[in-house]
Design a protein around this nucleic acid. Structure first.
Lengths: 338, 338
DNA sequence: TTGAAAGCGCTAACAA
DNA sequence: TTGTTAGCGCTTTCAA
């Protein structure tokens, strides 16, 4: 490994090709104002010298780095990993690289990462966060570069974003239960520190109940961790209520699988004893028996559209018509519901 | 959003503080050769002007960017996402940022991404690949910056790497079966285009069989995709053999869960009718009934150690004693085995 | 302890 | 169509 490195610069190419560096720069950047024979000559030298443009120098001179920052709560979480893939694919398509950082959902870290990204001179940022604090909102509003929120809610709507209609989606899921005659419907949620969980999915749940003339029973609503173990535990808690639920609306696939296994372990049958609808539809939804009926959260698409939106801002394309994009959703029917 | 940006430079700070830019540079970089009062004066101006160092300019001048490239087959795959998290955590600890790119396991893309990373002047690279081609090996061997392979095998051992002893681990897993008296043991693997699957896990499998005096039956070895559906399908294929297996060694958790559900769907009991051992131990291993006995692949640690190793090369620390690190492994016993 | 000055490798006017 | 020339914002000798 480690060989002697002789960095060949645009200047070396220019000298070898008997042209000025400006000309080399032109051919490297595909500027059409170069005579074909000159272009060929330069290209040959570039190939021979194995010249590779220095993106850092280019970034300094042009004030564009062709890299975008991605701030994500936790890349090892499938949920966010799927989003990240959507972001990266579109970034690649537009020739951007991605600087990826985990925030672990800590506000202090989010703030610090933003500064770090600004320092690195990224051309734009895609941000994910369960909860946009006032301070974070402020900082993003004064960002030197465009920012797009992916699958995250900023209730002030100051920052462009891509989401689905979480409230409506939750409403539709729970409405299935009320339509089926369920009166005792549980909402097993991830943490209420997440705006989406607390102010959207929960509101959708309440709306569906209200419409069916069912009163919200706080005992049927649990906001714990967004994990398999919580689902397992929450099933236990809820099924032991003196007036237990007959249907579960789960905030995520892991939670739903926990609930299902809780039921299985208690020798209950899904969907006969309890119906379950999840909210995510990751590939886990099919990896459990019975397979999960689930609201389809198009995470890849949300990531992809976020990045696409960001490119519009970065290129100052046509005045973007809608800064707060809402993608469509649907419910995928499988076997955890009747 | 988008406010008028007045970039304040080191020069502005210098002027305001009545010192030279060299002095500002010194305080920014924590150089001790600055009189405390001067330092304070400069720090005050920095705070007042909200000066933020431009990492690009710094990178050009110092030839160090404090960013490392990460080339990964697919970030949306939990397996790699876990590795990536380990890498990122240690990178953060050492103040590096990460440029993350997906290769989709295509050699052409891997090669091109390396060039792209070189162009971005990363200080080092962590690479993951199922199969290191000759050309890739060549390119990495002539890299201008250090490269470490994470959970990937380069049989020439030319490039530093971090792995576990896959062969031994597979051997131990299969030995459980032979010790338990199984004679018909299947190996349901991910693709054999993966060096680890083909040359290590498979060899471990063969070694355990050989030791037990069992001949390898090619019909019991299936190298398909590394997915739940493949597991499901492969169970069908294998269980319909006229002389079917009684134990399954699965190459990954998804494969193992597919096998288990295949069995469940066929009204078979695990581990009574079939025993199953997986190779991964992601959090999925507990999210299935029965829970999976699995070889523990410490992905996070492999990522973390890879990054740590890379920092040693980047800082030209003490001559690294071992370039090809082997981390310990173990088997986690759960309920898919007796 | 501080400052002056020469780059780092490239882009982007502007001129020819 | 091509070349000249300033920077971009910082680090890093070297000298004081």
């Amino acid at each position: 490994m480690r060989c002697q490195q002789v960095t060949v610069t645009i200047y070396d190419v220019a000298r070898e090709a008997n042209v000025s560096m400006a000309t080399v720069s032109r051919v490297v950047n595909g500027n059409p104002n170069v005579k074909p024979t000159t272009r060929k000559k330069v290209l040959d030298v570039i190939a021979r010298l194995e010249y590779r443009p220095n993106a850092v120098a280019r970034g300094l001179a042009s004030k564009k780095t062709t890299t975008v920052g991605v701030i994500i709560p936790d890349i090892s979480n499938v949920f966010y990993a799927e989003l990240a893939r959507g972001i990266e694919d579109i970034a690649t398509m537009y020739r951007y690289n991605i600087i990826l950082s985990n925030s672990d959902q800590r506000e202090e870290k989010e703030l610090q990462l933003l500064d770090n990204m600004y320092g690195k001179q990224v051309d734009g940022i895609v941000m994910m966060s369960d909860q946009v604090s006032e301070e974070l909102n402020q900082k993003m509003s004064h960002s030197p570069v465009p920012i797009v929120l992916a699958a995250t809610i900023d209730e002030s709507k100051q920052v462009p974003s891509v989401n689905i209609d979480y409230l409506q989606a939750a409403y539709e899921a729970v409405k299935r239960f009320t339509d089926n005659g369920h009166k005792r419907i549980a909402y097993v949620s991830g943490p209420f520190t997440s705006t989406i969980n607390k102010n959207y999915k929960y509101e959708g749940y309440k709306k569906a109940l209200a419409e069916a003339g069912i009163e919200v029973d706080e005992n049927l609503v649990i906001a714990s961790e967004d994990s398999y173990d919580s689902g397992l535990e929450d099933f236990g808690t809820l099924s032991n209520l003196q007036n237990p639920p007959t249907a579960f609306f789960a905030g995520s696939d892991e939670l739903a699988i926990g609930i299902i296994h809780g039921a299985v372990d208690a020798d209950k049958k899904i969907p006969d004893d309890y119906e379950v609808i999840s909210f995510e539809n990751s590939k886990l939804a099919r990896m459990v028996r019975p397979q999960l009926t689930s609201v389809v959260l198009p995470l890849y698409d949300i990531g992809a559209v976020s990045m696409r939106l960001l490119t519009k801002y970065m290129n100052k394309e046509e005045q973007v018509d809608e800064a707060n994009v809402i993608l469509p959703h649907r419910i995928e029917d499988r076997n955890s519901t009747k």
